[in-house]
């Protein structure tokens, strides 16, 4: 298992990661948390071609502006790695 910690924007399409931290004001942290984007949650990158990106988590797909996504730190999961989302 690799332990590569990167910003959400560097996940490629199809890759998964576990969120480590969200930096930013309470507004951004709270808003993302209420949509299911918070530490310990597993996300999958669906669309990442410049501009905003789309991730899925727990059956929801969420579009996030690039600026906001840069503030989300994830641990990249290598292909095939099954990870409990409460990691």
């Amino acid at each position: 298992m690799t332990d590569e910690v990167v910003s959400l924007v560097s996940l490629r399409e199809g890759e998964e990661g576990v969120i480590q931290a969200v930096s930013g004001g309470p507004g951004l942290i709270g808003r993302l948390a209420s949509l299911g984007i918070t530490s310990g949650i597993k996300v999958r990158m669906v669309r990442n071609i410049g501009g905003p990106l789309i991730v899925t988590t727990n059956g929801t797909r969420i579009a996030i502006g690039r600026g906001q996504a840069q503030k989300i730190v994830v641990r990249r999961l290598t292909a095939g790695e099954e990870e409990d989302k409460t990691a």
């Binding site: 808003r31 993302l32 949509l35 905003p52 969420i62 579009a63 996030i64 502006g65 600026g67």
Partner: peptide, 9 residues
């Protein structure tokens, strides 16, 4: 200008 764009699809 900060433009937080967070939207559910």
């Amino acid at each position: 200008m900060h433009m937080p764009f967070i939207m559910e699809l």
